[in-house]
Amino acid sequence: MMDSDDPIVHLDNVGLRYGTDKEVLSGVSCSLDAGRFYFLTGASGAGKTSLLKILYLAQTPSRGAMRMFGTDMLTIPQSRLPEFRRRLGVVFQDFRLVEHMSAYDNIALPLRVAGVRERDLAEPVEDMLSWVGLEHRARAKPATLSGGEQQRVAIARAVISRPDMLVADEPTGNVDPDMAMKLLSLFYALNRLGTTIVVATHDLNLVRQMPDATIMRLDKGRLMDPTGALRYPPRAERPAGKRELYDRAMRPTIGFVKADEHDSGDDSVAADVEAAEKRGWEMP
């Protein structure tokens, strides 16, 4: 169905407006490669959640083109959306835990939705519970959990079905730095197993821990990609003669910071981000 080289997500000149307001995302073009780790940064209100909603198929772009898993997401019938949503794991910014279900049942929900038999549930759910350190709270309802505990349940629910792509919206916003590191290493482990990860975050410390990650930065609804890691088609495939033309055409909309192409120092990503912040995210 999908070539292994194909990007897992490809957005082309995507725009989004809520109702008749002005666009909260404009001209967003990027392609996310399967198996990579992406951070999505940007000021509050820049449109991170909006872009993630498009990625986790909760929101249809108001313009542009969108392919996921090798399929055009804008023309498929609504009845096929569930099959693609089941390939995604989502940590919502507001968690969206189901109030009347225990932590255990919330974490089990994606498996139940996917039709996993009850006797095959217990082991993975208990594993996840202990991964996020909540074995002792398995029977607790979300309302009786602390903010950080709720967030960990939300993360456990997002990763339990081993999704092809994990989309996490501020997944460490409510936990202490130690727990944040633990959760990040969970994402990293998942990434190692082949899951594409997209994490929206304000936390530069977190970004600094993942030198291999690609950083996408949103600024007032536009995606910055100064070095072109998010460009599409991939550089190698671009017609050589038209490269200049292509670059010039993409310049206004795409930006990039990519850690491993610069140096391998621990703080390289963060340094890039900080340098870019100072420059105002212009092209170098």
Binding site: Y56, L57, A58, S79, P82, E83, F84, R85, R86, R87, L88, V90, F92, R96, V98, E99, H100, L109, P110, V113, A114, R157
Partner: peptide, 13 residues
């Protein structure tokens, strides 16, 4: 409604 929305987003039909 809220639960149903979550179920939809998790791929429930």
């Amino acid at each position: 409604a809220k639960t149903i929305e979550v179920i939809h987003l998790l791929g429930g039909d």
